[in-house]
Amino acid sequence: MSVIYILLTISIIIAIVFFFAFIMAVKNGQYDDSYTPSVRMLFDDELVKETPKKADSTKKD
C-alpha cells in the first residue's frame, strides 16, 4: 500500500501546478476584466470566416 505515497505526491504536484497556473493568470491580468474577452472571442471567429467570404459580400453590395 505504500504506493499511496507516490499517488499523494503526484496528486499534490498536479494540484500545485494548477495553483501556480492560477496565480500566473491573475498576475497577467486575466481576472481584471471578465466581460470583454467573452465578446472578443466571438469576433475572432467572425474574422476567420470573413476572408473567404469577402468576394461574394462585395458582389451583393
Partner: peptide, 11 residues
C-alpha cells in the same frame, strides 16, 4: 503604427 489595442468594456 498602432500595434495593438485592447478594450476593457466594464471600465
Amino acid at each position: 503604427e498602432i500595434s495593438s489595442s485592447q478594450v476593457n468594456f466594464g471600465k
